[in-house]
């Protein structure tokens, strides 16, 4: 581990020293022919690899959409599983081009780590899970609890804030990998498992007896999760940001994976034509072809389709759209217009 840390530090420093100076991210990505996308080490619904190494999930599709926008082919992505602890170094050293890994947008991360958040693809909040047998109904009863979570997360800070402001004591046991957190909680090392609520829903299935646990009603933080890029490359930042906006706008306009091509041909609506490349030179302004958004949508579908497929009520995660619904449907998803 120490050898690996030093090695990656050395590689990191070497990349700081040599890497990004050379070309823009878009040029570099085009030259190598694929996008390197940093994802989690296995969070069902968001980024998870199956037995044959195929990655699926909402965060994975974010990267596929960008690949489709750049190459016209959503499969031109390679994935790097990263722990919470490794992710920012991996991005800033140039090991990955996009970090799409349930990462919370905070001011410190945005301003001090040399990163930029390109948007939000899931509005979340931190929750807590306890064994039903404990009989706990509210987080305010948790004084004296042992709590398991991941290192290098906002989770560690929020839980500390929450217990401090409620004058409760607790002991935090922080593991590097999510699987060990689950295993330790499952073995009874901790009374509480805390992480993003979406994370709780995703990890619940890994417990021996998923039904013997409850998620407490309190949501103790705001966790806007979204794709992240290196600071200092505005073009790449724009590509990722507008790919996400395109997926959300597509849902608003009722453009789907199945009907996108037909809609382009059959419409006189200028907003739809602009989005799908029938009017204007929006793609060229990004350094891409004008059918960039059409390609992204045909690769993964609009935001709503991607949501339903990966984390929605019909998946094991059973997450309602809630605040992640469009603004026009009572949620807070509101993408800037393409014009």
């Amino acid at each position: 581990m120490i050898k690996r840390t030093i090695l990656s530090a050395a590689v990191g420093i070497a990349m700081f020293a040599t890497g990004a100076n050379a070309a823009t991210t878009l040029e570099a990505v085009k030259a190598k022919g694929f996008i390197q996308c940093g994802v989690s080490q296995g969070l069902p619904g968001f980024s998870n690899a199956d037995d044959s190494g195929n990655w699926t999930g909402l965060d994975v599709e974010m990267c596929r959409a960008v690949a489709a926008a750049v190459f016209g082919d959503g499969s031109k992505v390679k994935f790097s599983p990263l722990s919470a602890k490794q992710r920012f170094t991996a991005l800033s050293s140039g090991e990955v081009d996009i970090l799409s890994r349930n990462t919370t947008w905070t001011m410190t991360r945005d301003t001090q780590l040399g990163l930029n958040f390109a948007g939000v693809n899931y509005y979340d909040g931190q929750g807590m899970m306890v064994p039903t047998a404990l009989g706990v109904k509210s987080a305010t009863e948790l004084d004296g609890a042992n709590i398991c979570t991941n290192t290098g997360t906002t989770t560690e800070l929020n839980i500390t804030d929450y217990f401090r402001s409620n004058n409760m004591s607790f002991n935090l046991i922080a593991f590097e990998k999510a699987d060990e957190v689950v295993a330790a909680y499952d073995a009874g090392r901790c009374d509480v498992y805390t992480t993003d609520r979406s994370g709780l829903a995703a990890q619940r299935g890994k417990l021996t007896n998923p039904d013997a646990h409850v998620v407490l009603p309190e949501i103790i933080s705001k966790e806007p999760l979204g794709p992240v890029v290196r600071q200092g490359d505005d073009q790449w930042f724009n590509i990722v940001r507008w790919t996400l906006n395109a997926l959300i706008n597509a849902e608003e306009m009722g453009i789907t994976q199945a009907n996108a091509k037909a809609r382009l041909k059959g419409t006189e609506n200028p907003a739809i034509k602009r989005l799908l490349g029938g009017e204007g030179k929006f793609g060229e302004e990004l350094g891409l072809s004008n059918d960039w958004a059409l390609n992204a949508i045909t690769a993964v579908g609009n935001y709503g389709e991607s949501y339903e497929r990966n984390v929605g009520p019909n998946t094991p995660l059973k997450l309602d759209r809630g605040v992640n619904a469009l603004w026009s449907n009572g949620g807070i998803l509101y993408a800037a217009p393409i014009r």
């Binding site: 700081f16 602890k85 920012f88 410190t108 290192t151 290098g152 922080a174 590097e176």
Partner: peptide, 17 residues
């Protein structure tokens, strides 16, 4: 050390080098 300083703390302040 690696866990708490080069891990947790590093992730909060981002001073890799």
């Amino acid at each position: 050390l690696v866990s708490v300083f080069a891990g947790t703390a590093l992730n909060q302040v981002g001073k890799e080098i």
